[in-house]
Design a protein around this nucleic acid. Structure first.
Ligand code: FES
Ligand code: FES
Lengths: 146, 146
DNA sequence: TTATAAAAGGACATACATGTCCTTTTATAA
DNA sequence: TTATAAAAGGACATGTATGTCCTTTTATAA
């Protein structure tokens, strides 16, 4: 399961992408409201994302968050990697110090399938692919009443 | 990903089963060493397990932990449920308040497959099935040098 | 040029998971 | 019956994730 911070990060990035497609650059307040996260905490997470170049920001009047062209294919894996690390894609599901094909724990064969399946998802899906589904009305960003 | 406490719990139960098959009832010290966990913390987890009837224990000289016949098909799900709850089998992978088939988040279709796959594993595999693999030498309980 | 609006950054606060220590209870062996 | 060994239980300690608040920096509009 992803950490709360990672979930906030992914939803924030998706919202920024949606607004960018409307030629807008949302600020912390607007983003926090839309992703249903505390504003100050959201600010911290956004800082992590810009510091790691997953998106850009402008300070000052009229500033906000946005993607430039280099960032237009950002996998969920990239986000997870920056926010919580990638331990969950390597860890032994049974809690052994390392996962090892040649000296497996009793869950290894089954667990590996699930773990690799999740890895495949986050390496395939991008902020842009998720945003596209929302734009098309095939999925939702939040559970706010409209 | 399972919590550390849940991992300890599962490994502890497996070790107790293995020792029970040898007509032994291990104590906290022996269990903690075998599962590579802190002894006092292991004691707490074992208390949770016995309080919830996942296994039995005897106090006093010659005491220790063991299964009685009612407990001989203990799914991993039962253990997870008692130790960390079952939120992870219901949660939205994108962080929405509830997962909902009819109003899905953009990860829903793919995530559900992985989440349900893991659920299937933990509902199918039992402490006894894992122990059996270790007994047969097909898998290991720990990474201690022998 | 100055006031303002916005992100960045640092310090602090809270909650929960993990881990430790000491006392109490209880079953058995001597 | 008493001493001992073992689990149970309560209180406390530490670490990490989550969350808050206030100050600093910086870009723009007036
Ligand atoms: S060794 Fe446990 S999952 Fe690979
Ligand atoms: S709504 Fe997000 S996983 Fe089902």
């Amino acid at each position: 399961m992803l950490s709360k911070s990672t979930e906030y990060a992914i939803r924030a990035l998706v919202f920024v992408q949606l607004r960018n497609w409307e030629q807008k650059r949302p600020g912390v307040g607007e983003i926090a409201k839309e992703i249903e996260a505390p504003e100050a905490y959201t600010a911290k997470i956004l800082q992590t994302l810009t510091k790691n170049k997953l998106m850009d920001s402008m300070k000052g009047r009229g500033g906000g968050f946005f993607f430039n062209d280099n960032q237009s294919n950002l996998t969920l894996y990239d986000v997870i990697h920056v926010v919580e690390g990638d331990a969950c894609f390597h860890k032994c599901g049974f809690g052994l110090k390392q996962c090892n094909n040649d000296n497996p724990c009793p869950l290894h064969e089954q667990y590996k399938i699930v773990r690799d399946g999740f890895f495949e998802i986050v390496k395939t899906e991008t902020i842009q692919s998720l945003s596209e589904k929302i734009k098309q009305g095939e999925a939702v960003l939040n559970r706010l009443k409209k």
